[in-house]
């Protein structure tokens, strides 16, 4: 058990026996009153996001999780399918538990799986990842305005805004927290 005031983003909590990940945490104070935390929580079983406001001094159950390395294989429309790199067993995670991570799941890439009581809950993404650009429109001549961007498609099918000089076949670095282009790698 921890005090609600110690909750940080990315932590896993158990509320009414359901596992949640903390998506956002804000410290809030009413004009005249004790401190609260305002949380955006994602239920890792249902994928539903809800908000909570808890007194900072209130106790909340934090979950002990373990991490395991697993290779991403594919998705079958319902689940993401991973393979534990040690045991080779297949692990299924419902797409709705981590839909927003779909853009970063490169087939064959190894990720850190977060497991709670034998249930895979989520994956930990590296803060930055490289992706190949598979489709890019060429910038039209004369587009020399600084800061101008265009859309390209990366190998996972995700579309991202990049500077005009990026071409098809380039490898780029993407910030997985913001979904933004960082720099060209090759």
């Amino acid at each position: 058990m921890i005090k609600a005031g110690s909750i940080s983003k990315g932590m896993f909590l158990s509320i009414k026996n359901e596992p949640y990940v903390v998506v956002e945490r804000e410290f809030v104070n009413p004009g005249k009153g004790s401190a609260f935390v305002r949380l955006k929580l994602k239920n890792l079983k249902t994928g539903l996001v809800n908000r909570q406001v808890i007194k900072s001094q209130e106790s909340v159950e934090d979950i002990e999780v373990e991490t395991r390395d697993a290779q991403y294989l594919y998705n079958d429309g319902n689940d993401f399918i991973f393979m534990d790199t040690e045991t080779y067993e297949q692990i299924h995670i419902p797409i709705k538990a981590m839909e927003e991570k779909m853009a970063y799941l490169k087939e064959g890439e190894t990720f850190q799986l977060i497991i709670w009581e034998s249930t895979p809950l989520d994956i930990k993404l590296p803060y930055k990842m490289t992706f190949k650009v598979i489709e890019a429109e060429n910038a039209t001549k004369g587009d020399t305005v600084t800061g101008a961007t265009k859309n390209v498609k990366i190998e996972t099918g995700y579309t991202i805004k990049v500077p005009l000089f990026i071409k098809e076949g380039d490898t780029i670095l993407v910030n997985t927290e913001t979904g933004e282009y960082v720099e060209r790698v090759n």
Binding site: V28, P30, K32, G33, F36, Q52, V53, K55
Partner: peptide, 11 residues
């Protein structure tokens, strides 16, 4: 009561 009110207000 104050704490409960504040909780609703902040949420």
């Amino acid at each position: 009561w104050q704490e409960k009110f504040n909780q609703l207000f902040l949420a």
